[in-house]
Amino acid sequence: MQGLLAQGISVRYGARSVLAGLDLPLLRPGEVTVLAGPNAAGKSTLLRAIAQLQPHGGKVLLDGRDLAHVPMRDRARLVGFMPQSLPAGSSLVALESVIAALRAGDTLGARGADATAMAVLDKLGIGALALEPLSALSGGQRQMVSLAQAIVRDPRLLLLDEPTSALDLARQVRLLSELRRLAAEGRIVVAVLHDLALAAQWADRIVLMHGGHTHAEGRPELVLTPALLAEVYGVEARVERCSRGRIMVLIDGEHAPG
């Protein structure tokens, strides 16, 4: 069975249950899936659970293999993870940090690693930053380097936690079209996005999370409806259809209950 299947995912922080037996539909290769939902809905936790960075109950199957039982080194080849932010204090240069993404887990030996890492930076349009220390980069630039670290091992599954949060418009488009391209090559891409307009434009599927559950999921125009947005976010929203079948989400204000 090709694709990513997450079933019965549950995570507790102490006594507080963050995810309570959450199921995701089968996410197929070639698809970009966006996890959306209000703060504390459990989006980042779900992403970290799928990446096996967070102890959890339930099963995560990638192409039928239980990721919890895949040895770490092999898992690093299969899964790329982009965290919300990189630590700002490191004096490692950008290129070094991407080489570390290849060599720390012995994914690639000394020979090819340097050139492979450099090629990824070039592809993302940040080749000029290769020799800059991470501490000298802006938040957005660091985010692009972090993306390079996530994709340099050429993973089958790509997990991204708010990858556009610090990016300007041009870089947002660059990153999202890169994600589309990576998906088109047969990868599974899952990203947490807060910006519903971006989600509507770039996602094949949106999973709308609320209170640790999947509230709704499906194609953007099925999920981004005024009724669902009022339920989950408590906002008054209009959804307009525009050219080329796209939809646009306009927020009018807080939802007045009743």
């Binding site: 970290r48 990446a51 096996q52 960075l53 770490m72 080194r73 898992r75 690093a76 080849r77 899964v79 790329g80 993870f81 965290p83 990189l86 630590p87 490191s90 490692l92 070094e96 940090s97 570390a100 993404a101 290849l102 060599r103 720390a104 887990g105 012995d106 994914t107 972090s146 670290q149 996530a150 091992r153």
Partner: peptide, 20 residues
């Protein structure tokens, strides 16, 4: 050395690179 270098990028990053 490379594992320790990766840890400078944060624990999550090092783990996702395949470092125990």
């Amino acid at each position: 050395a490379w594992k320790l270098t990766a840890l400078r990028l944060g624990e999550d990053q090092a783990r996702s690179f395949g470092v125990d």
